[in-house]
Design a protein around this nucleic acid. Structure first.
Lengths: 223, 223, 223, 223
DNA sequence: TATGAATGAGGATTCATTCAT
DNA sequence: AATGAATGAATCCTCATTCAT
């Protein structure tokens, strides 16, 4: 009984959060109406305030949930056994698709960072999400797939920056996911690989090619 | 006399625009109060409406001016005689610094794109600004400093995306211009240089092989 | 309970409507302030908008109610069994008194007819009110108390026109109901009674001759 | 020169008045914009205030002019030598047509009567206009064309009330001048004629018929 | 006398939040 | 816990009027 009761509450909270996410996404922070959120969640206006103190806290919850879900999805999207390159490819694809789907929420995120008009450094959920990328990169370095002297934070800016900008471009043009974007980005990452002597002398036996082939094998082994 | 009169009007319009830019930048579109803008421009509220029909048109004017000025500044920042690499370096530095200074206006730009709630494809001023980058890249290709087979739009996403993301990171951490960001970005662009001699000797160029492999991977990932 | 709740809402709506009627009556449409209406109804400004979408809809409701009540009152004022003359007398008295009491609302009525700046032909409530007069007149014709060849719409203009003009005159002079006005109007209506016996004996009825002459005059005046 | 100067000023005043009349007529008192009036008069906004202290005084001037012109027109419309009936016919026709043309100004008249929110008894210009009707009626009494025991003010209410109401009806239905309205009204006035013995005994030799014939003769003599 | 840019008070309307039921 | 009617502060915009030129 108590269990059922609690479950009902949690389900309702989730319903409200989903409705809020949709409305914030469609109308932006200031365009979103608490009444509309309540209507979509099929609860009374006052009920929303039983779960969230005010509009800003609801926004925070929406943003929080969004990045948590994004993190969960990212982890799920990555093939555990795959090599670093493959994983980056998967993460990039997942990120680009997510941005295309929910660009508005990402834009809104900066608003949730505000506390009394002053910006808060960084949301912990985003830190968590970023950690997925960082983990892959670090593993790449550990596995000598990436040079040890790269600065992950710089590459991170390239990775997420490029994907965000690409997503915005695509969304503005009503276009959908474009694999070329991912391919181009991944090719860029070749630069971060450690330079091997063999690389420079031979044309075909380069490690790049070997790596690409290994990724393809990995992929094939998944069927 | 008539000249003086007109100049006074233009000066006043500029004052209002500057005040609006500041207030929009500090408070965002919906947070900005017309009364505050008027106060800062030291005019009556009604006066603002003599120059701009409503808040949204004022916003459009602000955004328009911002990108126009940005374009002017970018062109001025680029050394005409310099080589392509140097020009890109200059543009990147200028762009990063501008973003750090006026990040909010960039964020706000998307709001100015709205017409009757519906988004407009692209603002002509931004197209103009982007053309500066495209021009340099095209010149790079023409001068054989870049491979002829690169897609400028993809590189553009990397360039602007990385700088925007870096700027946001820096701003969030209250940091200032970091030359490392530029250096890293420029090193990344080495990749777009034409293949080296060794590549040209082997019948099948490694980059072509890489591209073919990439296409295969893409295809595979779609299953 | 639910009954009580609904009653409370209806009572409140009525209170607002009454307050609005008073304020519109005193200050005219544009002179009326929503804040003043709310104050008189003893509700918050926002509350008015829960019941009426905007000022114009409130005005429409006020006008609608006025004419409905007028119709109700007119029907109540007429002695059902009385002869046509008596009924007309009662209606005229009731109408004159109503106009003296609420002249401003009648004047305002034309404003409620506006939709998007364009006038609407006729309000259904007024049509309903006018039907009371038309009914009596028709009954008078049926009962041979009035000639069959009268045009009700013309007599209607005389009836309401005279009463309205008289009411305006009285109100302007701060005077009250004057039974002379009614008596005079009723005496005028004698004219619409069927021709007397003497008329019926002559082959060509004098009224017919008069009508023919009148048509000739009309024709002549058009040159 | 001084003459020319004064004429120029008077012409300008007249232009402004004409523009104001048009705008007040189209948009009503509160709907009328001083800027629009100035625009139509082809003067600057401030110039209007050189001629009229404020909007209300301009309104008063407009109404004043309207009724003055109406009086002038009415006097011109009446055939000096004609008999009373004919003159009433002419006045009624002129009044109905004027109302159809400028109904809005008549409605607006009541607004010009306001002084500090309190209504003023009656405008002198209207008194003047009404005198035209009264004069004809008095002459009718003097010439024994009307009974001596009628009350002119009561008949006046019938006359103007009927015409105003008819005009409103016609305007609302987008119709034009309808001679039937005048005919009906004039026939109603037969009632005010002194009752003659001969009237009641003979069917055809009634004074009414004679009078109508005399009106026709009058009319014909005008060609 | 004429101009028209500038003023700023005023008002309709919205909507986040509260609270009696 | 849930409701939704009520609140009223807050804000964009209009426009009659003024006044420096």
């Amino acid at each position: 009984m108590a269990e059922t009761q609690r479950q009902r509450l949690e389900a309702r909270e989730e319903t409200i959060l989903a409705a809020a996410t949709a409305v914030f996404g469609e109308s932006g922070v200031d365009g979103a109406r608490m009444a509309e959120i309540a209507r979509r969640a099929d609860v009374a206006e006052g009920t929303v305030y039983l779960y969230y103190k005010n509009k800003h806290e609801l926004l925070e919850a929406v943003v929080d949930r969004f990045w948590r879900e994004l993190t969960k999805g990212a982890i799920a999207a990555i093939s555990e056994g795959a090599n670093v390159n493959q994983q980056l490819h998967e993460l990039a694809s997942y990120h680009l698709q997510s941005l295309i789907d929910d660009f508005k929420i990402v834009e809104i995120t900066s608003r949730a960072r505000m506390r009394h008009g002053e910006p808060v450094r960084q949301l912990p959920q985003i830190r968590e999400y970023v950690r997925v990328f960082d983990g892959i990169m670090q593993r790449g370095i550990d596995l000598r797939e990436f040079s040890a002297d790269i600065a992950i934070w710089q590459i991170r800016d390239v990775f997420y920056g490029t994907l965000e900008h690409s997503a915005r471009t695509l969304v503005l043009r009503d276009q959908v996911f474009d694999p070329l974007v991912i391919d181009h980005l991944m090719r860029l990452f070749e630069q971060y690989r450690p330079s091997l002597e063999t690389d420079k002398t031979s044309g075909l036996q380069s490690s790049e090619i070997m790596q690409a082939l290994s990724r393809i094998e990995t992929k094939l082994s998944q069927f």
